[in-house]
Amino acid sequence: MDKNQQAIERMKEQKYEEAAELFHSIIEENPDDPVGYINFGNLLMHMNDTERAARFYERALELDEEAATAHYGLGNLYYEKSDYQKAQKHFRQAVDIGLDEADAYFLLGMTFVHQEQFKLALPYLMRASELHPDDLEYLFQYGLTLAQSEHIEDAKPVFQKVLEMNDKHSDAYYNLGVIALYEEDLSGALDHFEKALEIQPEHVLAANAKKQITDAINADDM
């Protein structure tokens, strides 16, 4: 096991001081290799030392502006700070350079979601789901963004697939209820909202939607 692998293992074991010593040694031995700076930046992110992490990622990019994982690291850093425009810039550069990983596409998509640019988010969330089809969060966020982009017919099977993977997903039931309302299927909507509330009794949106439907049904019966 080389020194870099040892350092990564120490980081996984949360032995951060030992990992830092090894990464520092790697950088001293190979000062022009961006990988050491990127790994040290990743370690500092684990330690919540974002200011120093940024400096290490930026140093890696000074050495190699095509270092996709340095852009990804900076993207993560700015995403954690809710600076979605800067995060978006770095995630996009990472992807454009060739970082074909689900996390990068997902987080890039979510930077658009947080800025309510739902249609722009769609291709990235779709790609994340394609690369990692078993990830429930990727799939749900893709379905939600489809719905928010008014692609209701496309969103419906995505939420249904979420429930195939996890039949206790209250938000998937809630969103299927909203789609049923859009389709003017009141009884179907009520059923979905009730299932959401069985799973999560404090689901405020489902409770409000159920009340509106029952009030409308009661008013029609009067």
Rank of each mutant, 00 (worst) to 15 (best):
M1Y: 15
I8H: 02
I8W: 04
E9T: 10
K12F: 06
Q14C: 08
E18R: 12
A20I: 14
E21I: 15
I27Q: 03
E29P: 01
D32L: 04
D32G: 05
M45W: 09
M45V: 08
H46P: 10
A53S: 02
A53Y: 00
R55A: 15
Y57N: 02
E58D: 14
E58L: 12
A60R: 02
L63C: 07
E65S: 15
E66D: 14
A67I: 11
G73E: 11
N76T: 05
L77Q: 04
E80V: 03
E80K: 08
D83A: 12
F91P: 00
Q93F: 02
A94H: 01
D96C: 08
I97M: 03
L99K: 06
E101I: 07
A102F: 03
A102T: 02
D103F: 00
D103N: 10
L107A: 07
L108H: 01
M110G: 04
M110Y: 01
V113M: 08
V113P: 08
E116I: 04
A121I: 06
A121Y: 12
R127Q: 11
A128T: 08
E137K: 10
E137F: 04
L139T: 01
L139R: 05
L139P: 05
F140I: 05
T145E: 02
L146S: 09
L146Y: 08
S149G: 06
E150G: 07
E153Q: 00
E153R: 06
E153C: 03
D154H: 01
K156N: 01
F159Y: 03
F159A: 06
F159G: 07
V162E: 00
V162A: 01
E164N: 02
N166V: 09
H169C: 07
L176W: 00
L176G: 03
I179R: 04
Y182F: 12
E183V: 09
D185S: 11
S187Y: 14
G188M: 10
L190T: 07
D191C: 05
H192E: 13
E198H: 00
E198Q: 12
P201R: 00
P201M: 06
L205W: 13
L205Y: 13
A206N: 03
N208H: 11
A209H: 06
I213Q: 05
N218H: 13
D221S: 13
